[in-house]
Computed example of a mutant assay.
Amino acid sequence: MRKSKEYGRNVFVGPVWTTDALFRETSELYREAVEKGCVGIDMECSAVFTLGKIYNMKTAAIMVVSDKPGTEKSFWNIEKFASELLQGLDDAIKIAFNTIVSLKENS
């Protein structure tokens, strides 16, 4: 979280609904996830965390918000927000890399 503040990025910590089913999120499932406290929807982390559990490895995720279901900032209007998304992805990569380097230096 400290590294993300160096880039002026907001940090949200909380449960994420992760699924490997493309476009599975319906309005009803989205509402249920929000009611359960989910702060995001993701498709990749389920595999990463499953493998981490199987092989007893520590796992983590850093995510970039690409859309907000049910608002004008949806996947379907992504070209309108492309520069924000690309900057967020670039910052996420830098934050992740710098965090890993810091962890290595402090171990």
Rank of each mutant, 00 (worst) to 15 (best):
residue 2 R to W: 05
residue 3 K to D: 01
residue 3 K to V: 10
residue 7 Y to P: 00
residue 8 G to A: 12
residue 13 V to H: 08
residue 14 G to D: 06
residue 14 G to Q: 01
residue 15 P to A: 03
residue 15 P to W: 07
residue 16 V to S: 10
residue 17 W to A: 11
residue 17 W to D: 13
residue 22 L to F: 14
residue 23 F to P: 02
residue 25 E to M: 14
residue 25 E to L: 09
residue 25 E to I: 14
residue 26 T to D: 13
residue 26 T to C: 10
residue 29 L to P: 02
residue 30 Y to R: 10
residue 33 A to G: 15
residue 38 C to R: 00
residue 38 C to M: 14
residue 40 G to L: 01
residue 41 I to S: 11
residue 44 E to P: 07
residue 47 A to P: 04
residue 47 A to N: 06
residue 50 T to R: 08
residue 52 G to H: 01
residue 55 Y to A: 11
residue 56 N to A: 11
residue 57 M to K: 10
residue 59 T to K: 01
residue 65 V to W: 00
residue 67 D to C: 05
residue 69 P to R: 07
residue 70 G to F: 00
residue 71 T to R: 06
residue 72 E to S: 09
residue 75 F to C: 03
residue 75 F to M: 15
residue 75 F to A: 13
residue 75 F to G: 06
residue 76 W to K: 14
residue 82 A to K: 15
residue 88 G to V: 05
residue 90 D to W: 01
residue 90 D to M: 02
residue 90 D to C: 05
residue 91 D to H: 08
residue 91 D to L: 08
residue 92 A to E: 00
residue 94 K to N: 11
residue 95 I to T: 09
residue 95 I to M: 03
residue 97 F to M: 11
residue 98 N to R: 13
residue 99 T to M: 13
residue 100 I to M: 12
residue 101 V to L: 13
residue 103 L to C: 15
residue 105 E to D: 10
residue 106 N to D: 13
residue 107 S to T: 04
